[in-house]
């Protein structure tokens, strides 16, 4: 009986230990974010990697999502309403700016950047590069974690803004060239329902997602287990936990911002 209870007991203790370590890591990240020196070159390098090199992935994802939403909303709304042009434009702009822009960009960047961060920092851990940083009087938190967290938090909103634009453009392409809507009517429908508040909330979500992606990537990399298996597990965990947290936080922020 005691042995049976030991199994869930150990699992619970391990989970509490992990939560404690993560909380401590978040606390240290927030503390060191405000402390100089800030490694400008590292931040710029990360911004280039996260912002610029993620553009194709985010652009393609949001464009095709915009196109699919336009098609789906047309086939859905034509059964109930004759005002297809306005309703398709409305659905596309609302869903892209409020939800799919930030969430898809977040998930794509989690897959691309979160995994890379965990793999890079995890490899640095297993090859003693993190210990080497420490012996060279450089705090690993400031040199490795802070530039990544700062760059991801700053870059995701810009990526989402561009993704929103491309997504709406995808909807426009389908509406005009496949559904034969009038371009001016579609555009005026888009502009009519394009709310600054929706865009801002989308950008707030993006910044939060950027913070979470970098945090998870750095955390799992920093505490990576030994060997290739440890780094592999760190990479997987970074992507899985980032994706789950993105969806949970999306729900929470949406609830706070749009609940009536």
């Amino acid at each position: 009986m005691v042995q049976l209870l030991q199994i869930p007991g150990r699992a619970a203790l391990a989970m509490l230990g992990e939560i404690g370590r993560l909380s401590f890591f978040i606390g240290r990240t927030l503390f060191w974010l405000a402390q100089p020196p800030w490694y400008g070159r590292q931040i710029l390098r990360q911004m280039l990697d996260i912002g610029y090199f993620s553009l194709p992935v985010v652009g393609l994802t949001t464009m095709f999502s915009g196109m699919v939403i336009a098609l789906q909303s047309y086939t859905g709304t034509e059964r109930f309403s004759a005002e297809g042009e306005t309703s398709v434009a409305t659905v596309v702009v609302l869903i892209i700016t409020r939800e799919l822009g930030p969430v898809l960009a977040g998930l794509m960047v989690a897959g691309r950047i979160g995994a890379a961060m965990a793999a890079e920092i995890g490899t640095m851990r297993v090859t003693d590069q993190i210990d080497a940083l420490d012996t060279l009087s450089t705090r690993p938190m400031q040199y490795l974690v802070i530039p990544r967290v700062a760059a991801a938090t700053l870059c995701l909103p810009f990526l989402v803004l561009i993704g929103d634009t491309i997504g709406v453009f995808g909807g426009y392409v389908i509406a005009v060239y496949q559904l034969n809507f009038s371009p001016s009517a579609y555009l005026s429908g888009t502009l009519e329902f394009l709310e600054a508040f929706d865009v801002i909330i989308g950008l707030v979500k993006a910044a939060v997602f950027g913070f979470i992606i970098a945090l998870m990537g750095c955390y799992f990399g920093y505490y990576s287990g030994r060997g290739a298996e440890g780094v592999g597990r760190a990479t997987t965990n970074a992507v899985v936990y980032s994706a789950i947290l993105i969806l949970i936080l999306d729900f929470i922020i949406t609830g706070l911002a749009f609940a009536r």
């Binding site: 890079e120 640095m124 003693d128 590069q129 210990d131 009087s137």
Partner: peptide, 20 residues
């Protein structure tokens, strides 16, 4: 600790050179 580390040089087993 930083004052102590400034006096120290370390050669790691695998070199631990920064890949990037």
């Amino acid at each position: 600790r930083e004052q102590i580390l400034r006096k120290i040089g370390m050669l790691f087993q695998g070199g631990a050179l920064f890949d990037s």
